[in-house]
Design a protein around this nucleic acid. Sequence first.
RNA 1: UGAGGCAUAGCGCAGUUUGGUAGCGCGCUUGGUUAGGGACCAAGAGGUCGUGGGUUCAAGUCCCGUUGCCUCAACCA
Length: 475
Amino acid sequence: MAKETFVEQIADIEQDFPQWYTDVVLKTKLVDYGPVKGTMVIRPYGYAIWENIQKELDKRFKAQGVENAYFPLLIPMSFFTKEAEHVEGFAPEVAVVTVAGGEKLAEPLAIRPTSETIIGTMFSKWVQSYRELPMKVNQWCNVMRWEKTTRPFLRTSEFLWQEGHTVHSTAEEAEEATMTMLGVYKEFAENCLAIPVITGKKTEKEKFAGAVATYGMEAMMHDGKSLQAGTSHYLGTNFSEAFDIRFLDSDGTHKTAFTSSWGVSTRLIGAIIMTHGDERGLVLPPVVAPVQCVIVPIAARKGGVVEACESLKAELEKAGLRVAFDNSDNSPGWKFNEWEMKGVPVRIELGPRDIEAGKMLCARRDTLEKGEYPLENAVESVKALLDEVQKNMLEKARKHRDSHIVYADSMKGILDGVEGGNFVKAGWCGCRACEEKIKEETAATARVYAEGETAEKCAVCGEKSKHVIIYARAY
RNA sequence: UGAGGCAUAGCGCAGUUUGGUAGCGCGCUUGGUUAGGGACCAAGAGGUCGUGGGUUCAAGUCCCGUUGCCUCAACCA
């Protein structure tokens, strides 16, 4: 029976979490494997989550004066070679088109792994005067990176994302934009996805190829591993020099501009699943859930039940809620499990007994609690319940994370910490050798600098500590 | 690229040791009974056994080749 298989797989949650994850993703019909290795076909239910993420982010981008635009999928290889670090970093994972129209191309075309190079090229044409700055554009698109090992949503060869790119007349302003967008991501992750994140600067080793500084937001999955959920890069003049993005300043001289870029991807959907998912399947935060509330009829053939469900659905939809009415002829128990697996935040059970009493039974997905509410104020009750679920999910995730942050002052301490499923804060002398030694011995990487914290000495070499680093094993 | 494994119905698998009518569970279709936590009965549909060759009266099964996929290692903002 399907359920037994599912539960058996769930039982492996601690040992083999990614397998559990993959099974849930496939069973809930979010995606299928794609025909090309490492790609996925996003089904309507999964794509609806993405659309809601887009909607919420676009609102926030607009508030920052960012406009949406679109740039080509294919980028001449020569564009990549203009920024040395960038090409070196991305070369191993770029897919290249060499033949088109039946003929070998004079210049190979890269399928974009990210668009700094093509957008930089366009910025150089667009930017003339300081009056046009800052310039802020964002594009929603697909990118391709030829990864060796892949997992649905977390690492796929092709994925959907948004990449924002800004141009500024001063370094300070570009740096500020980098930090502002990082803040937008953090607020979005916490308020919309109910995922608490730690933001901070990345080490030289972990930074974006071609950036002056990379800032990331790291989320703790419930096995204690970290997922890089978004990044914001301060690019300084690295790309504007390579692509000749210059402007005429108010003092009449030509100056090189400063740029930033920032992005989040469909990996966020993976973050939601791995942060909130439980042994029954998905748990989706109400703000981005494709279906916020499902109505399950009981004894649907009895007179008046279907009609009552339909009128309740209409009432809730009128109030702007995303509602489903499951009138299939599966048994109620089957429906309960099905919709729970799909992560719908609130389920309403409506049967003859309830209709007679003027009540409805609401079950919330996050705690699985059931409660009776009057049918009369259904909209208010459901809305309040959704808000409550959203808040509780964030709190629950935050508590889990905060109770899994530990300090260490030795290599063994770091190893024990990450093996116990924790984020480990430890002092670092700042040298590359110590950072690499930790990765070698513990399989943990430096996720971000812990801002404003200090330590006595480096956990590896014992020299004076310059920074505190948050170490974790990562997806 | 190194090591190991897998390929049989939509999905998951058995059958290969010892060659002899193509099987099971789930799902699907039809009809009926059910319904407050994955219901039940009955009847059905569905197969070039990854692929090419060989051995044999006879190959899913044995032999040789080949292709694809998976796991680990490596690689990976």
